[in-house]
Amino acid sequence: MKILVGYKRVVDYNVRIQVKPDGSGVVTDGVKLSANPFDEIALEEALRLRDKGIATEVVVATIAPADAQAHLRNGLAMGANRAIHVVTDAGQEIQPLTAARTFLKLIEKEQPDLVILGKQAIDDDANQTGQMLATIWGRPQATFASKLEVADGKATVTREVDAGLETLEVDLPAVVTTDLRLNEPRFIKLPDIMKAKSKPLEAIPFADLGVEAGKGLKTTAYAPPPKRSKGVMVKDAAELVAALKQKGLL
């Protein structure tokens, strides 16, 4: 069984993003970039399925400018067998529908039995690509997975939904998107970084895939969020209750 994993590079989750003073964007120069946390979880889950002998090959894919090669090497160092780099122009924005259409091209080429993406990329926080991909592929989706079992051509997925935990059974091939509690990704070891250097990494220019161009969203302004001002400190429980009563909250 072959698994295709979405592996996006984003601003590291520890970075406190700042909006540029002129409102033209967010400051990304010199900011630390890392794998999207949900995508590390996606890759980890695929590797575990391979460790268990259920999967035979794990392919990581990213749609990003040329400088994202090192990022894909990290995915290879973590354990993926191969990497596919869909190379975009610097500054070219890839929105979820376009990402989904690009992944569909890769699926047509690779014929995976399972596609695992993150539930959301923590830069655009869109939470769309997996659902869109399943739709245009005409295959099942199981989003927000916190448990995944694969057997007999089916995936049984526990999903984190607002009401609790839902279990969904889907026929393969299918798209699964990961939630944080699915697993804890392994750390990359130094020897693995060396090994990753010789693993296959295929670069495909985005333009060569013939992805249908669609109209996207246009971002016209960036603003910092409304600030919450620092409040007051009270010294004990009695003062807290008094303060809340005064505000009419208790």
């Binding site: 989750y13 909006v19 967010v26 923590i122 830069d123 971002t219 960036y222 969020p225």
Partner: peptide, 10 residues
């Protein structure tokens, strides 16, 4: 976007 650290107009 970015966990609410920026608000965009689209």
């Amino acid at each position: 976007i970015y966990a609410g650290n920026a608000i965009i107009t689209v």
